[in-house]
Design a protein around this nucleic acid. Structure first.
Lengths: 221, 221
DNA sequence: TGTTAATTTTGATTCAGATCAATTAAAGCG
DNA sequence: CGCTTTAATTGATCTGAATCAAAATTAACA
């Protein structure tokens, strides 16, 4: 159930959902090149999507949590263009895309909602492009933490204290930085008393100053 | 008329298109914050989309040519999230989005096609993220030129010789580089006899070696 | 629980690209 | 057409992040 659907829509969408699927930490929801049948709505857990380069390095294209929809990139070629890997035990609903299209034909609000979700993904990606194209290390990390914070808040969790599910290397891949640079940026923000870092546990002490760190760049949605 | 529609679809879509609009070089098709009513299909010309930062600097998020669809990002909030500016005199068809949704309800192939276009934009953005996150200057420029080359070819123009419509600064903004770095990368590729540069005129002499320059990174679609 | 493997932090050094600066070339335009 | 403005190239220098390296911490698991 994507964030923002009303009860009626959720009910109808419930009929579309063929079945639930559990993915263990480290497991794949889908792989690059595998054929596309369904979108996946995350019910619980945390996943990353990444494209694997020939030489083995991976580029993380996103981190995804409850309520988000995965697989939108695969509609285009009917083939998944990235790997989706669970960073903790997760549960997803499989939504056969053909069925979704069929049903959305009769429910305009569902169709509109689906279009908005796709559009939001495009806006998000533009935000990441801005981040990668024009921000420096510390600004990128601040932006990343504020984005996570906001998403946790939206889901009813603390916006100021949370556990990272991903490694420094995965953060670095997403932010276009090396893991050492990510680690140093964490330490720097901690030295300035803006955040407290205890390995994966992050506490934001001064969200206003963290926002300042991000600079004048547009916010990632 | 987005690339890839069949005759029947184009005809139906023709009924949706409310009117054509000309934009002079330097003119705005839409501005950040303006309300969203319509998508725009480029009939001719060349445009850039960019987000403007508070301090006046701009980040180019894309270059767009004939057959491409603009405004997808605005569906989400019903407000444009970027400026679209013509880099040469251009002509677009306005496609009222509400009408498009309505008609696509009765023509499954049109709906599917629209979904594929949105999805392709997401895939493209992931490609740019990869470029910005993991490629170095020369690789980025090679990737950019190959992408342009392919798009010109698809439209019946030469893949090996074309005019850039944008400045070095705009290329740099798109690629996350400073204009001097872009200029140096051009000169380097020319020194190696891979391309010939005469200001905005580009000639690709050895497309195979240009591809090698791009490295092993996934191609931008 | 102990042992191994993976992750994180921190320091030293290097380097790609940014910045600063000056010249040249091209594009507008009265 | 000549004048002004904008764009592009190239050089010199600086700097932020990458790389190399080592230690410390945490997680995995037999």
């Amino acid at each position: 159930m994507p964030v923002g659907l009303n009860d009626q829509e959720i009910q109808v969408l419930g009929d579309v959902v063929s079945h639930k699927r559990k993915i263990q930490r480290g497991g794949y929801l889908h792989r690059t090149g595998s054929s596309f049948q369904s979108l996946f709505a995350i019910r619980s857990g945390f996943l990353k999507t990444c494209v694997l380069e020939e030489d083995g390095r991976q580029q993380v294209t996103g981190f995804h949590m409850t309520g988000e929809l995965l697989g939108l990139d695969a509609i285009s070629t009917e083939t998944h263009t990235c790997d989706a890997i669970a960073l903790e035990d997760s549960e997803v609903c499989e939504i056969p895309f053909a069925k979704l299209e069929e049903i959305s034909r009769t429910i305009p609000s569902l169709m509109r909602h689906f279009h908005k979700i796709m559009s939001r993904e495009i806006v998000r990606d533009h935000g990441v492009m801005l981040l990668l194209g024009s921000m420096k290390a510390e600004e990128r990390l601040a932006s990343f933490l504020l984005n996570l914070s906001r998403r946790f808040l939206m889901r009813g969790y603390s916006e100021s204290e949370f556990n990272l599910r991903m490694t420094r290397e995965e953060i670095g891949s997403y932010l276009g930085l090396k893991l050492e640079t990510v680690s140093r940026a964490f330490s720097k923000l901690q030295d300035e008393n803006i955040i407290t870092v205890d390995n994966k546990r992050i506490q934001i002490n001064d969200i206003a100053r963290l926002r300042l760190k991000m600079g004048n760049s547009s916010c990632i949605t």
